[in-house]
């Protein structure tokens, strides 16, 4: 029998679990329903573009990228919240963790598997949007840049869903992940709205500290810039990638730590 050394098993085990997670999702009907709905909306953006005469391209890009972002986020939350919890509930995890697989690898495999699903999902939607745009005014490579940033946000959101899924029920996970998403997209308004109205230096520091403690998913989004043909600031991409990796790293470490010593009753 051919056996690899245990440390060498790391990537194989994570990849095997990721591949199985991918297979699980693509064999689920819900995945296709969500995808079909998103594709319908993208095609509908073409109709909306005609209604808004003169700004067809902007309209298609605006509605199209928003549709992609929202449906990808919905899929990440919807699938992610059950990613670990359901394995424990359905006891399918017994067959994995009784083998020489660490819980951290299991979490990592499930996370990467869902990312793979989201990547395929995203690619399909970007292809449809590109085709719609091609009929309007021609393809723009900036869609790919926007899609890459959407994927960064999905990396964070999936890590959040995996974290909650490893410690809470799907309902609680869904609420918490959705709350994270909303906070992440509104936290940047906190200093913008409050700082002009506050004069106390201490209060201003508290507001800024609070803002820095909260996640800011707008730091990862360029949808508006792409739709309005505004150039992206230099240094945006490295900062966005670093911020994503920081959040994902923290969340996955927290997931692994909370799951590592948990009894699987």
């Amino acid at each position: 029998m051919s056996r690899r050394s245990l440390p060498g098993l790391f990537s194989n085990q994570v990849w095997a679990i990721a591949k199985n997670t991918f297979r699980e999702s693509v064999r689920s009907r819900v995945f296709y329903i969500l995808l079909a709905f998103a594709v319908s909306l993208l095609v509908f953006s073409y109709v909306l573009g005609f209604l808004a005469a003169g700004v067809i391209r902007k309209m298609v890009l605006d509605v199209g990228l928003s549709t992609i972002a929202y449906f990808s986020a919905l899929t990440a939350i919807f699938v992610g919240i059950g990613l670990v919890y359901q394995e424990v509930e359905k006891k399918t995890i017994y067959n994995i963790l009784s083998k020489p697989v660490s819980r951290t690898r299991f979490i990592l495999g499930r996370y990467l598997g869902l990312l793979l699903v989201l990547l395929v999902n995203l690619a399909a939607m970007v292809a449809v949007l590109s085709a719609v745009l091609f009929f309007v005014e021609g393809f723009t490579s900036r869609i790919l840049a926007a899609a890459s940033c959407i994927f960064l946000e999905l990396m964070v959101l999936t890590a959040v869903a995996v974290f909650f899924s490893s410690v809470a029920s799907p309902v609680v996970s869904a609420l918490c992940t959705a709350a994270f998403y909303v906070i992440g997209h509104t936290s940047s308004a906190l200093p913008e709205l409050l700082l002009p109205a506050v004069e106390s230096p201490l209060a201003r520091k508290v507001i800024l500290a609070l803002y820095h403690l909260l996640p800011d998913l707008n730091l990862l989004s360029i949808n508006n810039l792409v739709a309005h043909d505004i150039p992206v600031a230099p240094g945006f991409y490295p900062k966005a990638v670093a911020y994503t990796l920081l959040l994902v790293g923290l969340l996955l470490v927290a997931s692994a730590l909370s799951f590592e010593r948990r009894d699987l009753v």
Binding site: R3, A16, I96, K99
Partner: peptide, 8 residues
Amino acid sequence: FLGSLFGL
């Protein structure tokens, strides 16, 4: 799938 977890 489960066999691949043993590195087979």
